[in-house]
């Protein structure tokens, strides 16, 4: 099969080529300028954070040997040669992991309840009063802008060491994060059922129960499950500031250089997080009607 490509007259094609060069050249110089600004910003950042390339290469090796040490027991044998010795504290760690999951669950549940209550005043289609809306939105914004570990630090001093500050910190952060998502769902509902129920003379509670809730429930549950996944990760480090869960033991093991304990606890955390992610992802996809 023969094909012929039609060619343009030379003058015409030269003009086109010139035009193309000009356009591309303009874009190229813009990209170069952006790149220069970017590199300058990164250099400043590197200078501020005391990055030292020599130190980096030296430390890459150190990190490698750290990983290797994580894979060895105190007696110098690789961890997989003696699983009983590696996971010697399995019973204690399982209990702590259970506590971590409980902290995550209670924090998520409390946060979801508060976010549920706040999402209606924060939605413009259900709350005509701008001042109430403003107050609800700013409150939620504050709750989600402050990191949960900062809340935990403060609560540990107010409520004492233990899981209580952890739960409250997750609950407050969750209220802010979920409240925003919930109110966005509420703002996107179909208003026809709301008008229908309102026309029957229903009060606000009945209105939300029969017109709004059926439309938003699956979205709410899906976001709450997603929050639970995030909170399991957060709850695992709450112990770093004394707010309960497995974090306390992990912190101790890292600080005291109990290498095999560090790897054992990390593996337990990672496996738990992955299992929870898998289960909740299934449920979420089932809720939103997507194939799992």
């Amino acid at each position: 099969m023969t094909t012929s490509v039609p060619t343009l007259p030379p003058a015409h094609s030269r003009a086109l080529a010139l035009r193309y060069e000009r356009e591309i050249g303009a874009r190229r110089s813009r990209v170069l300028l952006g790149l220069a600004v970017f590199i300058a910003a990164m250099a400043t950042a590197g200078w501020m954070t005391e990055v030292n390339l020599g130190k980096l290469f030296q430390n890459i090796g150190a990190f490698g040997s750290y990983i290797v040490r994580l894979a060895h027991l105190a007696n110098g044998e690789p961890v997989w040669t003696d699983l009983g010795e590696w996971f010697w504290g399995l019973r204690k760690w399982t209990v702590l992991l259970g506590e971590t999951l409980l902290i995550a669950y209670l924090g998520t549940a409390l946060g979801a309840v508060c976010a549920f209550i706040l999402s209606f005043p924060a939605a413009f289609n259900l709350t005509p009063s701008p001042s109430i809306r403003f107050a609800a939105r700013r409150f939620m914004e504050f709750c989600r802008s402050v990191p949960e570990i900062v809340f935990a630090l403060v609560f540990v001093i107010a409520f004492g060491l233990g899981p209580i500050p952890g739960v409250l910190a997750l609950a407050i952060h969750g209220t802010g994060a979920l409240g925003k998502l919930f109110s966005e769902i509420v703002e996107n509902i179909d208003m026809a059922p709301v008008e229908g129920i309102r026309a029957t003379g229903a009060g606000r509670v009945a209105l939300i129960r029969f017109a709004v809730l059926p439309q938003v429930l699956s979205g709410f549950v899906s976001y709450t499950l997603l929050r639970f996944e995030i909170n399991v990760r957060s709850a695992a480090v709450m112990g770093f500031v004394g707010a309960g869960g497995i974090g306390q033991d992990l912190l101790e093991a890292i600080r005291k250089f109990y290498y095999s304990d560090v790897s054992a606890i990390l593996i337990l955390i990672i496996v738990t997080v992955m299992l929870i992610d898998m289960v909740t992802e299934r449920i979420r996809h089932a809720l939103t009607g997507m194939p799992a």
Partner: peptide
């Protein structure tokens, strides 16, 4: 693995500081 755990591990390897 949470950022905070990574931070703790790296502090052990490269020492305290922003690096």
């Amino acid at each position: 693995v949470d950022t905070l755990i990574w931070a703790l591990l790296w502090v052990n390897v490269v020492g305290l500081g922003p690096f």
